[in-house]
């Protein structure tokens, strides 16, 4: 696809999304808000999992921390929510940067398990600190109509997609792709891989926290099991992989497909959505290892990598 077609497609999708609230169907808007939220979350996961090749299983920590910090600052310290939100986003980004330094030394499964533990540990800490709401969580004042939250989530999703586009087409994006291809080779051409990976992780954290901050206000009630649900990370991951990891539109596409399918399945039975998610994961792994947008790229080299002889 040429650049012009991509831009046009992007404009059409954003315009359609902007016009959606004209329907004034509350149910539809609520579903769309959820989809926009997951599009943003999946895009944030894509930065570290898709572009850099570090499959994080703990990204919900940033979402949850963003929500909890913003709520804590506004409820306990009576900060205006916008200030609390900014501080929460910055705090979560810093959290990602600092924890990225040790965690990103691990690779593959080890990294995945360590990030999973990070999310669980963050939840445990939050549950035991009263200032952060403890096990009770926070009630926030109800605010405005659902449309506001739809536009906010949509805005973050657009920001995430545009940011991903800029990164992919920048030198920083090339560095991340180089790290994904071969980290030692990246170091030997002078790339400070620790800094690059931690930056990607922190950016991912910032986006995740932005979504969390809006989510807290949207739901007006949050507690640790909800905002630190590991299932949220799984959704980010599956959506990105289904749409096409490392692409701009992949996470968004995955969020729309899975979001719509889950809603359809929910109308039959509540458990049907889990079943569908499971089948979806299997289908992606078996038939679309590179995702829907990844299929036009030749899979050549993948096998070669697996069969690569030992170094030395």
């Amino acid at each position: 696809m040429s650049k012009r077609v991509n831009y046009a497609l992007f404009a059409v999708v954003v315009l359609a999304a902007l016009l959606l609230p004209l329907t004034s169907n509350d149910y539809l808007i609520q579903v769309a808000t959820g989809i926009a939220m997951y599009a943003a979350l999946a895009s944030s996961w894509n930065l570290i999992g898709g572009l850099t090749g570090y499959p994080s299983f703990g990204n919900v920590a940033f979402f949850g921390l963003g929500a909890v910090l913003a709520a804590a600052l506004s409820v306990n310290l009576h900060w205006p929510y916008i200030d609390a939100a900014l501080a929460a986003v910055l705090g979560s980004g810093l959290f990602g940067l600092v924890l990225g330094l040790p965690l990103l030394r691990l690779r593959g499964h080890y990294f995945s398990i360590a990030t999973l533990a990070l999310a669980e540990a963050t939840m445990a800490v939050v549950t035991n600190v009263n200032f952060l709401g403890g096990g009770q969580g926070f009630s926030l004042p109800l605010l405005g109509s659902g449309k506001i939250f739809y536009y906010l989530m949509l805005g973050i999703a657009v920001l995430a997609a545009a940011g991903t586009y800029l990164i992919i087409n920048s030198h920083f994006g090339n560095i991340l792709l180089a790290i994904k291809s071969d980290e030692l080779a990246a170091q030997s051409v002078g790339v400070n891989t620790v800094l690059a990976k931690s930056t990607a992780f922190a950016l991912s954290a910032v986006l995740g926290a932005m979504v969390g901050v809006v989510y807290a206000l949207w739901q007006s009630y949050i507690d640790p099991p909800t905002v630190f649900d590991p299932g949220i990370t799984v959704f980010m991951l599956v959506m990105t992989l289904m749409g096409g990891a490392g692409t701009v539109a992949g996470p968004v596409l995955g969020a729309v497909i899975i979001g719509v399918l889950t809603q359809l399945a929910m109308s039959f039975s509540k458990n049907a959505s889990s079943l569908l998610l499971g089948l979806g994961i299997m289908a992606v792994v078996l038939f679309l290892p590179r995702g829907i947008l990844g299929v036009h790229r030749p899979a050549k080299g993948g096998e070669r990598r697996g069969a690569r002889p030992l170094r030395g």
Binding site: N174, L177, A178, K180, S181, D182, L184, A185, A186, Q187, S188, V189, G190, V191, N192, T193, V194, G246, G301, R305, R308, P309, R311, G312
Partner: peptide, 28 residues
Amino acid sequence: PVWRIARLGLVRTFQVTRIFNDLTLREN
């Protein structure tokens, strides 16, 4: 660290080729 050594101008290649699969030759 490896990247610092590389920036000093002490550069190596690898016995088993290690190139960046996801980047074009020019980007490499």
